[in-house]
């Protein structure tokens, strides 16, 4: 007799746990408006990344096309995978002294691991992390970027 009770006991217990599971999923299927899907390309306008999000390295320029980069090369040293190349040039300043300045700050996006070490190491805060994450391009060479804009120069008062 005990065996029979046990037999039916297992059945009822089993069915009960199955129904509990169905209750959980049922709760969600009958509230389909609570979905968690993000409609990505459609929500571009409202999609705002967090301020610290590391999408790419950028070099902010002010309205006079001036940046803060002195061309010291610390970011290049700190980059673990060689995504940054600094090509510097010598410029003659107004008072006649020769000074090192940035010619091209080359950034290989395709090699970057977005570790933030270059930004952290930059003594002048010339480079920061941008929030753009749409990096898909048709040609790999487009992933190599020159961060300083053409014709830009270093802002006044930045010390090396």
């Amino acid at each position: 007799m005990n065996a029979i009770f046990e037999y039916f006991g297992t059945i009822f217990k089993g069915v009960k746990t199955l129904l509990t599971g169905m209750k959980i999923t049922g709760k969600y299927v009958f509230t389909p408006w609570k979905h968690v899907t993000q409609q990505y390309p459609e929500n571009r306008e409202t999609l705002k990344m967090f301020d610290r999000y590391r999408g790419e390295v950028i070099m902010p320029h002010n309205e006079n096309n001036e940046h803060l980069c002195t061309g010291c090369g610390i970011c290049e040293l700190n980059c673990p995978n060689g995504s940054i190349e600094i090509i510097s040039k010598m410029v003659v300043s107004e008072d006649g002294k020769k000074k090192r300045a940035i010619d091209q700050h080359i950034y290989h996006l395709g090699m970057c691991t977005f570790c933030n070490l270059c930004v952290k190491a930059c003594p002048t805060g010339a480079i920061v992390m941008g929030q753009n994450f749409e990096h898909a391009v048709w040609d790999r060479s487009k992933l190599t970027k020159v961060l300083n804009q053409p014709g830009s120069k270093i802002a006044q008062g930045v010390k090396e």
């Binding site: 217990k13 069915v15 746990t17 509990t20 599971g21 209750k23 959980i24």
Partner: peptide, 9 residues
């Protein structure tokens, strides 16, 4: 727990 851990299967 309800969905998986307690489930008889």
């Amino acid at each position: 727990d309800q969905l998986l851990s307690d489930n008889v299967i």
